[in-house]
């Protein structure tokens, strides 16, 4: 690693101030960032650790019925504390990485980084959640802008994610065998007014909504309705772990399995 100073603010306001420094970079759980720093792929002058900000931690039910999760909440906490209200999300959180990673990694870090193979972006997009930052709220549909790209401005921090709680939901994941990240994973969220389907791991453009499947499932919520649907293999990632065609195929399989899981 290149050397850097570490700031450990206790409040969001202090964190924002610290991030105003040239070449400052926020770090939440560090489970992606620290390996990146080890590979010397980033060179911050100041690393602003968000792990000491209590106001960014916790899972609570908002007045509007949404499940509000602080950006600094670890995957392990989400897995435990969201289980009653939003089991689909808790199930996703419980299968990110491994236990030690889940004890450090946070939802805010995952959403801010927007790795094309990360798990959380699928839940955020499939529920139409709102990404809350230190100075605004961003709708999920506007937030994700391609691989590692988001609507966040320089120095902006994800302080909270507000999830509308679906009637039912399920996250189905096929892992890449080395990294254990999703090769393809699909989050299906069934709401009273429709169905949303988000896919991670598969696309060259990062997490995306599969609107054709959403429309079909909105009509009849069973896996047969999406059987004939396909995504374009040309848009899918092709690498040593699977071709675009294979990933496109898995998008269908994972979607159908998620629907079947919801229908029991």
């Amino acid at each position: 690693m290149y050397n850097f100073d570490v700031e450990r603010p206790k409040t969001v306001a202090d964190a924002v101030n610290a991030l105003a420094t040239d070449e400052a970079q926020p770090m939440s759980g560090g489970q992606t960032l620290i390996p990146t720093l080890k590979a010397r792929l980033a060179m911050p002058s100041v690393l602003v650790s968000l792990s000491g900000i209590d106001e960014m931690k916790g899972v609570r039910k908002g007045d509007d019925g949404r499940l509000c999760i602080g950006g600094g909440t670890t995957h392990a906490t989400v897995a435990a504390e969201a289980a009653a209200d939003f089991p689909g999300l808790a199930g996703l959180a419980a299968r990110i990485g491994d236990p030690a990673v889940r004890n450090r990694g946070t939802i805010g870090g995952s959403v801010a980084n927007n790795d094309p193979s990360a798990c959380y972006p699928a839940a955020v997009l499939a529920t139409g959640a709102t990404v809350v930052t230190n100075n605004r709220e961003i709708a999920a549909d506007d937030y994700f802008q391609g691989m590692f790209a988001t609507a966040l401005e320089e120095g902006e921090i994800v302080t909270e994610v507000k999830f509308p709680i679906p009637q039912a939901s399920h996250y189905e994941k096929h892992i890449q065998p080395a990294s254990r990240f999703p090769l393809v994973a699909v989050f299906v969220a069934k709401f009273a007014d429709g169905v949303r389907v988000a896919v991670t791991g598969a696309s060259e453009n990062g997490v995306f909504r599969w609107t054709e499947a959403e429309a079909a499932l909105g009509g009849a919520f069973n896996s047969d309705t999406v059987k004939g649907l396909t995504v374009d293999a040309a848009d899918m990632i092709s690498d040593l772990h699977g071709s675009g065609a294979y990933r496109a195929h898995l998008v269908g399989v994972m979607t159908r399995r998620a629907v079947d899981a919801i229908n029991g």
Partner: peptide, 27 residues
């Protein structure tokens, strides 16, 4: 699972545990 892979230019594609699949307990 395991496969050490080079591309045609001789770049090692499976150069870490992110891409070289080591068997884990659940495998």
């Amino acid at each position: 699972m395991e496969n050490c892979t080079y591309d045609a230019d001789g770049q090692l594609l499976s150069a870490s545990y992110m891409d070289y699949a080591m068997p884990r307990a659940s495998d």
